[in-house]
Design a protein around this nucleic acid. Sequence first.
DNA 1: GCCAACGTTGGC
DNA 2: GCCAACGTTGGC
Length: 156
Amino acid sequence: MPSSTRRFWLLKSEPDCYSIDDLQRDGATFWSGIRNYQARNYMRDDMRQGDGVLFYHSGAEPPCVVGIAEVAREGYGDHTALDPDDDHFDAKATPDTMIWSMVDVRFVKKFTEPVPLATLKATPGLERMVVAQRGSRLSVQPVTDEEWSIVTQLGH
DNA sequence: GCCAACGTTGGC
DNA sequence: GCCAACGTTGGC
């Protein structure tokens, strides 16, 4: 795929842990703590600066897409894996291997209308969206151009 | 709080 | 390499 093509993603976060309001306050943040290989691979290999990100609140009532961010820095080593005091410490990670990767994301906008999961599931064109699939636990997900267009229109 | 779905681990 | 057991995620 040409590097000029902008792609789209969905990042999950529990709002009690890190919410869209936290990102708005911070402006940007490093997306650390991902400890799933598929999610890691997307961040390490596929996410490009400027890619669009749907910010999703999991564990919220209701769970919903709450806004937009963008990739501000492409994949690099997640240093929190090296810190024994960190919740996401991984004894297998070393400064040489790192193992885990993260990206930086920058706040773009908060939706005026959050888009609940139930709406995603009920909206034509979003049937195949990863987050709408039963048992979907992946916290970093690809989003198609069409899905991005529909969801960002729904959210405003 | 329940539990289905999923990813990972480890015995064999 | 299989697969049962386990821990975690996350909707409901």
